[in-house]
Design a protein around this nucleic acid. Structure first.
Lengths: 342, 342
DNA sequence: GACGGAATTGAAAGCGCTTTGGGTGCACGC
DNA sequence: GCGTGCACCCAAAGCGCTTTCAATTCCGTC
């Protein structure tokens, strides 16, 4: 059933039917009711492609995920983020188009997004420190919001980010207050912006307290369980092993934990551990009391907020690039305790 | 730049330009080259909405994920599955539309998919045992492939599934051969089809070997780390604790492992564990030697295959519903060993 | 040099919707 | 009786593309 048929069936023009369904005021209330009833009866839904052609709006948001060829890994955070975003889209009547781009920097993908005309705006995932996509998108003129930031780029674009720097600074500070002097950092890949900021926060806190940075206590890689296990195992073998760890993700933290187990070290007693926790649905940090002391950021909420920002920017293009910085909570779990006496 | 402008610039009709770009034979080679050069120069990409309107094909596949209100959790497998599917779409020039459906309003969402006309087919995720969506989609007449199956429905639809029953049967068999007599099953929610089949496989193997089923050794829930920890802790407290566990996911297995650690039980020595492993990018099962003995199914490949099936069905609607059953590998890791002497 | 068919190209219709720019009645005031 | 303003409705244009049908050109042939 399309508009023409519906109109014919009602003995009305397409114009009137269209207006009735889209809530225009110049149609008589009785007529509107008649139209709406018929639409319901025949299960009429406007064809979005046709509507899009006519209005110029696609009613669809694109999410662009870079999948690096080298590290073929889907960010586990993605599922939860997108769930949150999806809530906002459903409410606003938008669809979600997902594009996985093999190489973060393939310009033509982004250009095509605009030309193909099937999205009104996009959300950019996984920004690098110097992410050329931002300038590209500004040039293209498609509204966008970055999930995260790109430190090396001028900041006049829309983004939603967690305060990674501060979160890791605070976490480090907490460990230092507990008496830890040798702290290992197991970070994500540091050309990713979020990882870079976390490292900065970590180093800043160390420096503020006059602590040396031991390069052997810094490790970065894809945030897998294996990374945590490997990194912690290596560091613990060294002459001056860390008495505490900072980890960039829950799975990595579990790997670290396993490495402790191998050596008979007890978490929170012999060795302390703070991890970042994205509060993912399938990876809850304990039940009543959190297993890990953690910097927690509700990724799902962030997805929703980012989506709302983008929708707002589309609704009112004059509002300029919106920016949101969210603070992570520092939640106390059972993985931290005073540094052991030497 | 749109087709008309491009045509004008070339002093050609839209017809010819369109044909040149779409590889129709009736256009002179010299002209085609000229057109292609101009298209590249101006970065012309056809507007998909307009093309879709004209051709009736959306060049887009919908993925529908139910998000149950009760268990607000995104299936962690989803990211990898969709990455695989995406590969196939990119090659075929398709886009991917993601819809998260809160399962209450099911029916009208699927009906709208068809009416809105922005997808040519859909992939259905998370099938339940008696999933009404299948009959609905058949009635609607939109090509679809189910990731998994629905045991209680007639099987004349397209699906791609892992042989869950056989995988868990084999895994159980292995444990029995190792001398285990009391085996705990920590499963996913059993109204989900895959979990139901795994349970069946588990029970079949027990029965075949004349082993009693202890209801206290069966547990099902959302496959979180906490589930594994809680279930294992409970079972180990009982008078006749399991000497081996079967787990439906890696994170759950890690929870079980943690519960063992709490009690000073060593994995693979004191207690054995086999888990299902979806081979996710960020949750690798060990490095050289797998940590866990596991039934492994490459979810990403499955995504690709499912997508290819759907594209084939769209290309040739007469080919009927395709079906693919994949076998999981049973890979040996360090989490299994002979049952301890009593 | 005219002719038939193959090779190229174009004009125009149409996909299903929105929206512009008129109508057509009708009530009202003069 | 006539203009005015309002409330309501419609015909038709147009969004950017594909595709049908027809027109034109080109060539080898007789």
């Amino acid at each position: 059933m399309n508009l023409r048929e519906l109109a014919k069936h009602l003995n009305l023009s397409q114009t009137t039917v269209s207006r009735a369904l889209n809530g225009y005021p110049e149609v008589k209330e009785a007529t509107r009711l008649r139209v709406e009833a018929a639409a319901r009866q025949f299960n009429y839904t406007p064809n979005m492609r046709a509507r899009g052609l006519a209005t110029g709006r696609a009613m669809c948001i694109g999410h662009v995920m870079p999948i690096s060829k080298k590290h073929e890994m889907v960010n586990p955070v993605f599922g939860d983020f997108i769930t949150g975003a999806s809530e906002a889209y459903v409410e606003a009547g938008y669809d979600l188009l997902l594009t996985l781009v093999p190489d973060a920097e393939e310009a033509h993908h982004y250009r095509n997004m605009k030309a193909k005309g099937n999205v009104d705006g996009i959300i950019v995932h996984g920004p690098l420190m110097a992410d050329r996509r931002i300038a590209l998108l500004q040039e293209i003129g498609l509204p966008f919001v970055v999930h995260g930031r790109a430190s090396d780029m001028p900041a006049d674009y829309a983004w939603l980010d967690m305060n990674n720097r501060r979160a890791f600074d605070r976490a480090t500070e907490l460990l230092i207050e507990l008496g830890h002097r040798r702290i290992g950092l197991v970070n994500g890949l540091e050309h990713m912006d979020f990882a870079h900021r976390r490292r900065e926060g970590f180093l800043a806190a160390l420096m503020r307290h006059g602590l040396e940075v031991n390069p052997a206590h810094l490790r970065a890689g894809e945030m897998t369980e294996a990374l945590g296990y490997g990194a912690a195992s290596d560091m613990l073998k060294q002459p001056d092993p860390p008495t505490a760890f900072l980890s960039s993700s829950m799975v990595t933290a579990m790997g670290i934990w396993r490495a402790l187990g191998d050596r008979g070290l007890r978490l929170g007693r012999d060795v302390s551990l703070i991890t970042h926790d994205d509060d993912l649905g399938y990876l809850k940090n304990g039940h009543d009391v959190p297993t890990f002391t953690a910097t927690r950021a509700p990724v799902r909420d962030m997805g929703r907020r980012a989506a709302e920002m983008l929708l707002e920017m589309i609704r009112d293009p004059s509002c300029g690039p919106l920016q949101t910085l969210m603070e992570a909570e520092l939640i106390l779990g059972r993985s931290t305790g005073p540094a052991p006496r030497e």
